[in-house]
Amino acid sequence: MKTLRGLFLLLLAVFSVSCIPHKDTLYFVNKSMALDSLQVVKEMQKPYRVQINDILTIRVKALDQDNVRILNPIDSPNLNMTSGEKSYYDGFTVDAHGNIRMPTLGTINVLGYTTEEIEKLLETKLLSEQFKATANIFVTVKLAGMRFTVMGEVGSPGTKTLFQEQVNIFEAIANSGEIPVTGNKKEVLIVRQYPQGQKVHHIDLNDTAVMQSPFYYIQPNDIIYVKPLRQKTWGTGETFMQNVATVATLLSLVTTSILLFNRL
């Protein structure tokens, strides 16, 4: 009986350690204030500055559209082409030197510029070299979708592209199949591209303070990695009842083995 009691206590200890705490499965946990307090969270979003390998979609409009036709992409006859594929073929890719090449305008450096700054740059260049102010030149520059990669403990890992101006980390995760119970929401890594190379940043999705982080909004070509919790490597159940069933099965197996051994 002492052996069974000791074994039961051991299994109980393993069970308690292997359980995934409920608080670790949540988002937006207020760790700094009372749970019922009113929070005013300021989202920190700086204007995105164009990096190498970004793809820009550029449209030029004028009173006489025929005069700017060469600057605009031609509609593809391939109706099966996706929006991402059209952007790849019709957009302007920022090369390793931070330049794009446009018809009649030649090579233009856009590295480190915002899309608004590129619009003004192109308008000024067109008006000074090819058109008069009466042409009413109007330029729009956008990123050809927000492309990012999600890896690790998510329902649908892979590279995604969302066609919107800005995407926060929760939207990126939601579009990647959500984080399962075995995913570590407290330590999510973001690998971000900078002119001098790549850097790894850590964010805690379990804390509401993440919305004040400079990494709350993702950037094009970000790599998001969700680590697994230690409980996954232990092979225990994900829920309370699964752990109960595991302990009960192990206890039954060991008890049966002991009883059979004692009969010999």
Rank of each mutant, 00 (worst) to 15 (best):
V40S: 12
S18C: 13
I169H: 10
T182Y: 14
T236M: 10
L251H: 11
T134S: 10
A245R: 12
I203E: 04
P214V: 00
A209T: 15
L205P: 00
G158W: 02
V17S: 05
N30T: 09
L251P: 05
I20R: 03
L229R: 12
T255H: 12
V41G: 08
E171M: 13
S16C: 13
V110L: 04
V154Q: 07
N136R: 09
N168D: 13
G112V: 15
E238D: 07
S76R: 07
A135Y: 11
A62D: 01
K42W: 00
S83I: 00
F148W: 07
D75S: 10
K185V: 09
Q65K: 04
N262A: 06
I108C: 03
A135S: 14
K46C: 00
G158R: 09
D75M: 08
E43F: 13
T134N: 04
Q212I: 03
Q198I: 06
I70P: 07
Q231W: 09
N67H: 09
G84C: 01
D222Y: 12
S37V: 00
E165W: 07
L35R: 14
D95K: 15
K227I: 00
D207G: 13
M211C: 03
S176C: 02
S83V: 04
D95Y: 07
K120I: 02
N99K: 14
Q130G: 01
K61F: 13
L12Y: 13
N168T: 08
E117S: 06
A248D: 02
N72G: 10
N243Q: 13
T246S: 06
I118L: 01
P228G: 08
F131G: 10
A144M: 05
V14P: 01
Q51T: 06
S252E: 08
V29A: 05
S76H: 03
T25I: 02
F28E: 14
D207V: 13
F138R: 12
N136Y: 00
I108F: 00
S128F: 12
